[in-house]
Simulated assay, not measured.
Amino acid sequence: MRVALIMTIDLTDQFTTGTASDIDALFAGRTTPADFDTLTALESEAIHIFREVAGEFERPVIMFSGGKDSTVLLHLAIKAFWPAPMPFPVLHVDTGHNLPEVLEFRDRLVQRHGLRLVVASVEDYLADGRLQERADGIRNPLQIQPLLDAIGDNRFDAVFGGARRDEERARAKERIFSLRDAFGQWDPKRQRPELWNLYNGRHAPGEHVRVFPLSNFTELDIWRYIAREDIELASLYYAHERSVFNRDGMWMTPGPWGGPGDGQELETRSVRYRTVGDGSTTGAVLSDAADNQAILDELTVSRLTERGATRGDDRVSEAAMEDRKRQGYF
C-alpha cells in the first residue's frame, strides 16, 4: 500500500535557507508556459523523487561533492520543499585532495542556505591507520570506507547522489532507487523494476537505498538547467588560467598529491573542469569557455564524456566504476 505525503506549509513562515530577495531570484520567471519543456519534465521528476523519499524514509541525506551535479541536486532539493527549509543534511566525503575552489564553494553554499554538513574525512582514516595510502597516490577508491561508516554511524537510510546514466556504463545499469546491502554493496541482480515512476524503497535493517534524481539528465541537460536557473557553481568549471601539466592526455593541477613527473612540464594554460573529483586523478580540459553559453556551445560538438575525458580512475579498466560500485562507491 502506498501512502501519499501531505505537507501543510505556513506561507507566512520565513524561508530559513536564504533571504527573500534570494528566493525571489531563485524562482523568478520559472513558470511561464514556454518553460514546460524537457528541462521542466526532468525537474518535475527529480522533485517528485525528493518528495517521495521524504515520505518513505526516516533519515535521508544528500551526498555533496561541490561539483556541478551535486550543486544541481541541492538546488532541486531546496526547490522541492520551498518555502519550508530543506529537510536533509548534506554529506561530503573529503579525500584531502580536493581542489581549494571546491572546498571554498562547499562552505559558502552550506553557510548561505543554513545546511547541516556532515564530513567524512579520508585523512582521519589515514592518520589512525584504518586506511593506507595507495601506491599510485589516488584517493578516490579510499572514499568507500569513510562513506559507509558515515552512513552507518548516522543511520542514514536513503542517500541521494548526483549520478547520471549518461556518465558511465555501470551507472546506466542502475535504477533511480538502488538497494545496497548491509555492507553497502551493490548487486546488479537485485535491481527492482520502476514502471510508471513507482519506486520501491523497502529495505531490511542495516540496508540502505541510494537515490539518483538526476538519472535521466544528460551533461548537456545539466548545463542547460544551470543556465536556465542561473545556478552558481565552483569557479573552476569556467575557463581560467592555471598552472597544469599533461599526464596521459589530461591536464593535471599540481598539489599535495604531487606535481609534474619525469618528462612532464608545468605550463600556464586556459582550462576548465568538466567534473570534480580527487585532485590526483581528475584533469581539466583546454577551454576558453568562460560562461554557460560558451560551455553549451562547446559540449554540443564534444565527442568525449566528462568522465572519459578527465577521470583517470575510470581508465583503469572497462569495469572500473562497476567494481567500485560493488564495493560501496557511488
Rank of each mutant, 00 (worst) to 15 (best):
M1D: 05
R2C: 00
I9L: 14
I9R: 10
L11Q: 07
T12D: 14
D13C: 01
Q14I: 13
T16G: 00
T17G: 12
G18H: 11
A20R: 15
D22P: 01
A25K: 13
L26F: 11
T31K: 11
T32N: 02
A34K: 12
D35Y: 07
F36V: 14
T40F: 15
I47P: 04
A54N: 13
E56F: 11
R59P: 00
V61R: 09
F64S: 05
D69R: 12
L73A: 04
L74F: 00
A77S: 13
P83T: 08
P85S: 14
P89D: 05
H92R: 15
V93G: 00
G96L: 06
H97T: 04
H97N: 15
N98T: 11
E101S: 14
E104D: 15
F105G: 11
V118I: 15
E123C: 08
Y125P: 03
L126Q: 02
Q132N: 10
E133H: 09
A135N: 06
G137S: 10
G137K: 12
R139W: 12
R139E: 09
N140M: 14
D153Y: 09
R155A: 14
A158D: 02
G162M: 00
A172T: 08
L179P: 07
D181L: 04
D181P: 01
A182M: 08
Q185L: 03
L195P: 03
N197Y: 01
N200P: 00
G201T: 03
G201M: 02
A204S: 13
H208D: 11
S215R: 15
I222L: 15
R224S: 12
E229G: 05
L233Q: 12
A234D: 13
A234N: 12
H240S: 03
E241N: 12
S243I: 06
F245N: 05
M250T: 09
M252L: 12
G259T: 00
P260I: 05
Q264I: 08
L266V: 10
L266C: 01
E267D: 02
R269H: 02
V271S: 04
R272M: 05
V276P: 06
G277N: 13
G277A: 07
D278S: 03
A289Y: 01
A290G: 13
E298G: 02
T300M: 15
V301L: 12
T305Y: 00
T305P: 01
E306T: 06
T310C: 04
V316L: 10
V316T: 13
M321A: 10
Q327W: 04
